[in-house]
């Protein structure tokens, strides 16, 4: 793997909620064209870390850099404007709206001229682009782009959510438990989809509890424990049981792992 400058970094991030320390001088690094898995036991603070990196939580202290430039992510919209897209566990799709409407929800394509001032939608363009995006990601098993999202299976919905994020994310794609609610076959499709997105050059952060999935597709694994990054391991050199042992504190990481 090429180790050039990281796309997204966090340094000494801290966050307290009253007496609870959710982030305790945590670091974070994401390199170009990689899939970085973030694992950690429940309550380890992974979600606080991810929320800080996507603008949903403001760290009390520490520094976030995007492409080497210090940035503050004031809210999720600010992160999105900078090209950091997140697929939330609860998907953030509107069930009654169509696939095309959902793909462009919040950033619709408007018609030109006077019609644009009234925020009239360019529906043909939205349909066309949505179809193209789903096609590139091999998702066109979906019958119609005008179908309501609630008529799709869990895997297809996840596919739409990932496709949407991949279409708009220019820097980073964050996936929060993308396979948690899916069956074996649907999970497989989503994993293939994630690999497809990496092929197109977008680095991916994958938060997951599913060790086989993490070890299968991740290039590096960020192990989070007690509010900070414990170590970063290479899935080709470490076994799943070692990773679980690190995550739960059963073993301490070697200095080589600590170096990340």
């Amino acid at each position: 793997m090429i180790r050039n400058t990281p796309v997204l970094t966090g340094r000494n991030l801290q966050k307290r909620y009253g007496r609870v320390v959710a982030m305790d001088n945590s670091d974070f690094d994401l390199y170009p064209r990689e899939i970085l898995a973030v694992i950690g036991d429940n309550g380890a603070g992974k979600s606080t870390l991810i929320r800080a990196m996507t603008g949903a939580v403001q760290p009390d202290a520490g520094e976030i850099r995007l492409d080497g430039q210090p940035t503050t992510l004031a809210n999720p919209q600010a992160a999105r404007d900078l090209g950091i897209e997140t697929v939330y566990q609860n998907l953030a799709l509107s069930p009654a709206l169509s696939i095309a409407d959902n793909m462009f929800l919040g950033r619709e394509i408007l018609r030109g001229g006077v019609a644009g001032w009234f925020r009239m939608l360019d529906k043909p363009a939205m349909r066309k682009q949505a179809r193209e995006q789903l096609n590139t990601l091999g998702l066109m098993t979906i019958q119609s782009i005008d179908q309501a999202v609630e008529t799709l299976s869990g895997g297809q919905r996840q596919g739409v959510a990932v496709a949407r994020a991949a279409a708009f994310g220019s820097k980073v794609l964050m996936l929060d438990e993308p396979t948690a609610a899916l069956g074996v076959k649907e999970s497989r499709k989503v994993l293939d989809l994630i690999l497809g997105v990496r092929e197109r050059g977008l680095p991916i952060v994958l938060i997951s509890h599913n060790m086989p999935h993490v070890f299968e597709i991740a290039d590096r694994i960020h192990v989070h424990r007690l509010g900070k990054r414990l170590c970063v391991v290479d899935p080709k050199k470490v076994s799943m049981s070692d990773a679980v042992a690190l995550m739960t504190g059963a073993v301490q990481p070697t200095p080589e792992m600590m170096a990340g």
């Binding site: 999720p76 919209q77 999105r80 997140t86 939330y88 609860n90 998907l91 953030a92 799709l93 509107s94 069930p95 009654a96 709206l97 409407d101 959902n102 929800l105 919040g106 950033r107 619709e108 408007l110 009234f118 925020r119 009239m120 939608l121 529906k123």
Partner: peptide, 24 residues
């Protein structure tokens, strides 16, 4: 046929999803 109209449906359908989609 307008963004505003679609957002009316979106916020009624799932307010959190609408917010996370970047709708104010």
């Amino acid at each position: 046929h307008t963004a505003w109209g679609r957002h009316v449906y979106a916020i009624g359908d799932d307010l959190d999803a609408a917010r996370l989609s970047g709708i104010r």
